[in-house]
Protein backbone atom coordinates (compact mmCIF):
# COMPACT_ATOMS: atom_id res chain seq x y z
CA UNK A 1 0.00 0.00 0.00
CA UNK A 2 2.29 2.71 -1.29
CA UNK A 3 0.95 5.70 -3.16
CA UNK A 4 1.60 6.03 -6.87
CA UNK A 5 4.14 8.69 -7.70
CA UNK A 6 3.15 12.34 -7.61
CA UNK A 7 4.73 15.75 -7.68
CA UNK A 8 4.43 17.80 -4.54
CA UNK A 9 4.05 21.52 -4.16
CA UNK A 10 3.50 23.55 -1.05
CA UNK A 11 1.33 26.61 -1.33
CA UNK A 12 1.94 29.52 0.99
CA UNK A 13 -1.21 31.40 0.12
CA UNK A 14 -4.64 30.65 -1.23
CA UNK A 15 -3.72 32.62 -4.33
CA UNK A 16 -0.73 30.39 -4.90
CA UNK A 17 -2.79 27.27 -4.33
CA UNK A 18 -5.31 28.55 -6.86
CA UNK A 19 -2.67 29.32 -9.42
CA UNK A 20 -1.19 25.83 -9.02
CA UNK A 21 -4.66 24.39 -9.41
CA UNK A 22 -5.19 26.49 -12.50
CA UNK A 23 -1.95 25.18 -13.90
CA UNK A 24 -2.43 21.47 -13.19
CA UNK A 25 -6.21 21.30 -13.27
CA UNK A 26 -7.84 17.95 -12.72
CA UNK A 27 -4.47 16.24 -12.27
CA UNK A 28 -3.94 18.11 -9.05
CA UNK A 29 -5.42 17.64 -5.65
CA UNK A 30 -5.23 19.77 -2.57
CA UNK A 31 -4.08 18.09 0.59
CA UNK A 32 -4.83 19.44 4.01
CA UNK A 33 -5.03 16.90 6.83
CA UNK A 34 -5.00 14.05 4.35
CA UNK A 35 -6.81 11.73 6.75
CA UNK A 36 -9.08 10.48 3.98
CA UNK A 37 -6.98 11.27 0.95
CA UNK A 38 -3.78 9.55 2.05
CA UNK A 39 -5.33 6.12 2.62
CA UNK A 40 -7.08 6.42 -0.73
CA UNK A 41 -3.75 7.21 -2.32
CA UNK A 42 -2.11 4.31 -0.46
CA UNK A 43 -4.75 1.99 -1.87
CA UNK A 44 -4.29 3.72 -5.22
CA UNK A 45 -7.95 4.60 -5.37
CA UNK A 46 -6.79 8.20 -5.75
CA UNK A 47 -3.74 9.04 -7.82
CA UNK A 48 -3.27 12.75 -8.32
CA UNK A 49 -0.29 13.72 -10.45
CA UNK A 50 0.19 16.80 -8.29
CA UNK A 51 -0.39 17.17 -4.59
CA UNK A 52 -0.72 20.75 -3.43
CA UNK A 53 -0.24 21.13 0.27
CA UNK A 54 -2.33 23.86 1.86
CA UNK A 55 -1.41 23.10 5.45
CA UNK A 56 0.78 26.15 5.90
CA UNK A 57 -1.60 28.74 4.56
CA UNK A 58 -2.29 31.05 7.49
CA UNK A 59 -5.40 32.56 5.95
CA UNK A 60 -7.03 29.12 5.93
CA UNK A 61 -6.75 28.94 9.70
CA UNK A 62 -8.86 31.86 10.79
CA UNK A 63 -11.68 31.35 13.18
CA UNK A 64 -13.92 34.28 13.80
CA UNK A 65 -17.36 35.76 14.17
CA UNK A 66 -18.44 37.69 11.13
CA UNK A 67 -21.91 39.18 11.31
CA UNK A 68 -24.47 36.40 11.54
CA UNK A 69 -21.89 33.71 10.77
CA UNK A 70 -19.19 31.81 12.56
CA UNK A 71 -16.37 31.45 10.06
CA UNK A 72 -13.89 28.61 10.07
CA UNK A 73 -10.89 28.49 7.78
CA UNK A 74 -10.75 25.34 5.72
CA UNK A 75 -7.40 24.15 7.07
CA UNK A 76 -8.27 24.43 10.74
CA UNK A 77 -7.55 21.18 12.52
CA UNK A 78 -10.59 19.36 13.81
CA UNK A 79 -9.02 19.05 17.25
CA UNK A 80 -8.43 22.79 17.45
CA UNK A 81 -12.00 23.53 16.49
CA UNK A 82 -13.32 20.98 18.96
CA UNK A 83 -11.34 22.65 21.75
CA UNK A 84 -12.42 26.15 20.73
CA UNK A 85 -14.94 27.27 23.33
CA UNK A 86 -16.01 30.31 21.37
CA UNK A 87 -16.81 28.22 18.32
CA UNK A 88 -18.75 25.81 20.49
CA UNK A 89 -20.81 28.62 21.95
CA UNK A 90 -21.52 30.09 18.54
CA UNK A 91 -22.30 26.84 16.74
CA UNK A 92 -22.55 24.05 19.30
CA UNK A 93 -23.33 21.42 16.68
CA UNK A 94 -19.78 21.64 15.34
CA UNK A 95 -18.32 20.38 18.60
CA UNK A 96 -21.20 17.95 19.07
CA UNK A 97 -20.51 16.48 15.65
CA UNK A 98 -16.73 16.45 16.08
CA UNK A 99 -17.11 14.34 19.21
CA UNK A 100 -18.02 11.46 16.91
CA UNK A 101 -15.28 12.04 14.34
CA UNK A 102 -12.42 9.55 14.24
CA UNK A 103 -9.93 9.55 17.07
CA UNK A 104 -7.49 11.88 18.79
CA UNK A 105 -4.76 11.25 16.22
CA UNK A 106 -6.95 11.82 13.19
CA UNK A 107 -8.52 14.94 14.67
CA UNK A 108 -5.10 16.39 15.38
CA UNK A 109 -4.35 16.23 11.70
CA UNK A 110 -7.70 16.22 9.95
CA UNK A 111 -9.20 19.56 8.98
CA UNK A 112 -12.69 20.93 8.88
CA UNK A 113 -12.41 21.79 5.21
CA UNK A 114 -10.92 18.45 4.32
CA UNK A 115 -13.79 16.56 5.84
CA UNK A 116 -16.30 18.76 4.05
CA UNK A 117 -14.64 18.50 0.65
CA UNK A 118 -14.30 14.77 1.10
CA UNK A 119 -18.11 14.74 1.34
CA UNK A 120 -18.56 11.29 2.73
CA UNK A 121 -22.33 10.96 3.03
CA UNK A 122 -21.96 9.42 6.49
CA UNK A 123 -19.46 11.95 7.85
CA UNK A 124 -20.38 14.22 10.70
CA UNK A 125 -19.23 17.67 9.60
CA UNK A 126 -20.97 17.53 6.21
CA UNK A 127 -24.15 16.61 8.04
CA UNK A 128 -23.85 19.57 10.40
CA UNK A 129 -23.11 21.89 7.48
CA UNK A 130 -26.06 20.63 5.50
CA UNK A 131 -28.41 20.79 8.47
CA UNK A 132 -27.47 24.31 9.46
CA UNK A 133 -27.27 25.53 5.89
CA UNK A 134 -23.62 26.51 6.05
CA UNK A 135 -22.12 28.38 3.11
CA UNK A 136 -18.88 27.54 1.40
CA UNK A 137 -16.48 30.15 0.13
CA UNK A 138 -14.66 28.80 -2.92
CA UNK A 139 -11.73 30.67 -4.40
CA UNK A 140 -10.08 30.45 -7.73
CA UNK A 141 -7.60 32.69 -9.44
CA UNK A 142 -10.39 34.50 -11.23
CA UNK A 143 -12.33 35.22 -8.11
CA UNK A 144 -14.51 33.88 -5.38
CA UNK A 145 -17.99 32.45 -5.04
CA UNK A 146 -20.10 31.31 -2.16
CA UNK A 147 -22.30 28.25 -2.46
CA UNK A 148 -24.85 26.90 -0.09
CA UNK A 149 -24.51 23.49 1.50
CA UNK A 150 -27.35 22.17 -0.59
CA UNK A 151 -25.45 23.12 -3.74
CA UNK A 152 -22.10 22.10 -2.33
CA UNK A 153 -22.83 18.44 -1.59
CA UNK A 154 -23.59 16.81 -4.91
CA UNK A 155 -22.95 13.10 -4.59
CA UNK A 156 -20.88 10.74 -2.48
CA UNK A 157 -17.35 12.14 -2.39
CA UNK A 158 -18.35 14.85 -4.84
CA UNK A 159 -18.89 18.55 -4.22
CA UNK A 160 -19.47 21.67 -6.24
CA UNK A 161 -15.79 22.53 -5.94
CA UNK A 162 -14.33 22.85 -9.42
CA UNK A 163 -10.86 21.45 -10.12
CA UNK A 164 -9.36 24.93 -10.04
CA UNK A 165 -11.11 25.95 -6.84
CA UNK A 166 -9.96 25.92 -3.26
CA UNK A 167 -12.34 25.85 -0.34
CA UNK A 168 -11.23 28.86 1.68
CA UNK A 169 -13.71 29.07 4.49
CA UNK A 170 -17.01 27.87 5.76
CA UNK A 171 -19.64 30.18 7.13
CA UNK A 172 -21.83 28.57 9.77
CA UNK A 173 -25.04 30.41 10.65
CA UNK A 174 -25.15 31.43 14.29
CA UNK A 175 -28.58 31.25 15.83
CA UNK A 176 -29.35 34.18 18.09
CA UNK A 177 -31.72 33.59 20.91
CA UNK A 178 -32.23 32.67 24.51
CA UNK A 179 -33.57 29.16 24.21
CA UNK A 180 -31.68 27.30 21.57
CA UNK A 181 -30.72 23.69 21.87
CA UNK A 182 -28.97 21.26 19.61
CA UNK A 183 -27.93 17.62 19.61
CA UNK A 184 -26.00 15.15 17.53
CA UNK A 185 -26.28 11.39 17.72
CA UNK A 186 -25.29 8.52 15.55
CA UNK A 187 -25.06 4.79 15.36
CA UNK A 188 -21.65 3.57 14.44
CA UNK A 189 -20.57 0.05 15.19
CA UNK A 190 -17.42 1.17 16.94
CA UNK A 191 -16.85 4.61 18.34
CA UNK A 192 -14.99 6.69 15.77
CA UNK A 193 -16.17 4.74 12.75
CA UNK A 194 -18.13 6.43 10.04
CA UNK A 195 -21.74 6.43 11.11
CA UNK A 196 -24.17 3.87 9.82
CA UNK A 197 -26.64 6.68 10.26
CA UNK A 198 -26.16 10.03 11.99
CA UNK A 199 -28.67 12.66 12.96
CA UNK A 200 -28.48 16.17 14.27
CA UNK A 201 -31.00 18.81 15.16
CA UNK A 202 -31.15 22.35 16.42
CA UNK A 203 -34.27 23.97 17.79
CA UNK A 204 -35.32 27.27 19.26
CA UNK A 205 -38.25 27.47 21.64
CA UNK A 206 -40.08 30.44 23.01
CA UNK A 207 -40.70 31.17 26.66
CA UNK A 208 -43.74 28.92 26.56
CA UNK A 209 -41.68 26.05 25.23
CA UNK A 210 -43.13 26.29 21.76
CA UNK A 211 -40.83 25.50 18.90
CA UNK A 212 -40.23 28.58 16.81
CA UNK A 213 -37.47 27.23 14.65
CA UNK A 214 -36.03 23.82 13.93
CA UNK A 215 -33.63 22.06 11.65
CA UNK A 216 -33.03 18.33 11.37
CA UNK A 217 -30.48 16.46 9.34
CA UNK A 218 -29.69 12.84 8.55
CA UNK A 219 -26.38 11.47 7.37
CA UNK A 220 -25.54 8.06 5.99
CA UNK A 221 -28.95 7.51 4.45
CA UNK A 222 -28.62 9.11 1.04
CA UNK A 223 -25.95 10.13 -1.46
CA UNK A 224 -25.44 13.33 0.51
CA UNK A 225 -26.43 14.44 4.00
CA UNK A 226 -30.08 15.38 4.04
CA UNK A 227 -31.64 18.36 5.75
CA UNK A 228 -35.16 17.15 6.41
CA UNK A 229 -36.80 20.52 6.14
CA UNK A 230 -40.38 19.30 5.87
CA UNK A 231 -40.18 17.47 9.15
CA UNK A 232 -38.38 20.31 10.87
CA UNK A 233 -41.01 22.74 9.63
CA UNK A 234 -43.83 20.53 10.79
CA UNK A 235 -42.52 20.79 14.32
CA UNK A 236 -42.74 24.56 14.43
CA UNK A 237 -45.52 25.63 16.70
CA UNK A 238 -45.55 22.38 18.61
CA UNK A 239 -44.26 21.92 22.13
CA UNK A 240 -41.83 19.36 20.72
CA UNK A 241 -43.61 16.85 22.89
CA UNK A 242 -42.65 13.22 22.32
CA UNK A 243 -45.83 12.47 20.44
CA UNK A 244 -45.27 15.37 18.07
CA UNK A 245 -41.71 14.31 17.43
CA UNK A 246 -42.63 10.68 16.89
CA UNK A 247 -45.38 11.63 14.49
CA UNK A 248 -43.13 14.01 12.62
CA UNK A 249 -40.29 11.55 12.06
CA UNK A 250 -42.55 8.68 11.08
CA UNK A 251 -42.39 9.63 7.41
CA UNK A 252 -38.65 10.32 7.35
CA UNK A 253 -37.99 7.47 4.94
CA UNK A 254 -39.55 9.38 2.06
CA UNK A 255 -36.79 11.97 2.24
CA UNK A 256 -33.98 9.42 2.23
CA UNK A 257 -32.46 7.07 -0.27
CA UNK A 258 -30.14 4.78 1.63
CA UNK A 259 -28.00 2.01 0.23
CA UNK A 260 -27.23 -1.44 1.60
CA UNK A 261 -23.89 -2.89 2.55
CA UNK A 262 -22.42 -5.59 4.72
CA UNK A 263 -23.13 -3.69 7.94
CA UNK A 264 -26.55 -2.22 7.24
CA UNK A 265 -29.48 -2.68 4.92
CA UNK A 266 -31.44 0.23 3.49
CA UNK A 267 -34.37 -0.71 5.69
CA UNK A 268 -32.21 -0.66 8.80
CA UNK A 269 -30.87 2.74 7.85
CA UNK A 270 -34.33 4.22 7.44
CA UNK A 271 -35.30 2.80 10.78
CA UNK A 272 -32.18 4.21 12.40
CA UNK A 273 -32.85 7.59 10.83
CA UNK A 274 -36.27 7.61 12.47
CA UNK A 275 -34.92 6.52 15.84
CA UNK A 276 -31.99 8.91 15.84
CA UNK A 277 -34.02 11.83 14.52
CA UNK A 278 -36.42 11.41 17.42
CA UNK A 279 -33.52 11.16 19.85
CA UNK A 280 -31.74 14.29 18.70
CA UNK A 281 -34.96 16.28 18.60
CA UNK A 282 -35.75 15.27 22.18
CA UNK A 283 -32.24 16.07 23.29
CA UNK A 284 -32.24 19.39 21.48
CA UNK A 285 -35.55 20.24 23.12
CA UNK A 286 -34.11 19.40 26.53
CA UNK A 287 -31.03 21.48 25.84
CA UNK A 288 -33.12 24.40 24.66
CA UNK A 289 -35.34 24.21 27.70
CA UNK A 290 -32.28 24.12 29.91
CA UNK A 291 -31.16 27.36 28.33
CA UNK A 292 -27.95 25.65 27.47
CA UNK A 293 -26.84 25.06 23.99
CA UNK A 294 -26.29 21.42 24.15
CA UNK A 295 -24.42 18.51 25.42
CA UNK A 296 -22.59 15.85 23.52
CA UNK A 297 -25.57 13.91 22.33
Amino acid sequence: MKAAIFEYARADSVAQACSLLAEYGADAKLIAGGQSLVPMMAMRLARPAWLIDVNRIAELKSSRRDGADWVTGAALRQADVERDGEAARAVPLIRQGLYWVGHVQTKNRGTVGGSLVQADPAAELPLVAQTLGARFVLRRTAGERTVSASEFFQAPMMTATEPDECLAEVRWPVWQGERIGSAFDELSIRHGDYAIVAACAQVEVDSAGRCVRAVLGIGGAAAVPVSVEAIARSLQGTQLEDAAIDAAVESIGQYLDPGSDVHATAEYRVHLARVLAARVLRQARANAAGGGRGSRA
Binding site: I189, R190, H191, G192, Y194, D261
Partner: peptide
Protein backbone atom coordinates in the same frame (compact mmCIF):
# COMPACT_ATOMS: atom_id res chain seq x y z
CA UNK B 1 -20.09 -9.08 18.18
CA UNK B 2 -17.98 -7.40 15.52
CA UNK B 3 -15.57 -9.35 13.37
CA UNK B 4 -16.42 -11.19 10.19
CA UNK B 5 -14.67 -12.00 6.96
CA UNK B 6 -17.82 -11.65 4.92
CA UNK B 7 -17.95 -12.88 1.34
CA UNK B 8 -20.34 -11.87 -1.39
CA UNK B 9 -22.18 -14.40 -3.51
CA UNK B 10 -19.62 -13.51 -6.15
CA UNK B 11 -16.87 -14.86 -3.94
CA UNK B 12 -15.40 -11.48 -3.06
CA UNK B 13 -14.21 -10.59 0.42
CA UNK B 14 -16.33 -7.70 1.65
CA UNK B 15 -14.31 -6.90 4.76
CA UNK B 16 -10.78 -6.67 3.49
CA UNK B 17 -9.74 -3.50 5.33
CA UNK B 18 -9.78 -2.37 8.94
CA UNK B 19 -12.67 -0.10 8.00
CA UNK B 20 -14.89 -3.11 7.38
CA UNK B 21 -13.31 -5.82 9.50
CA UNK B 22 -14.15 -4.39 12.88
CA UNK B 23 -11.60 -5.02 15.59
CA UNK B 24 -12.94 -3.86 18.94
CA UNK B 25 -11.22 -0.88 20.54
CA UNK B 26 -10.87 0.01 24.21
CA UNK B 27 -14.37 1.46 24.03
CA UNK B 28 -15.95 -1.79 22.85
Amino acid sequence: LYEKFAFSEEGQLLSGTFMDYLIPSALE
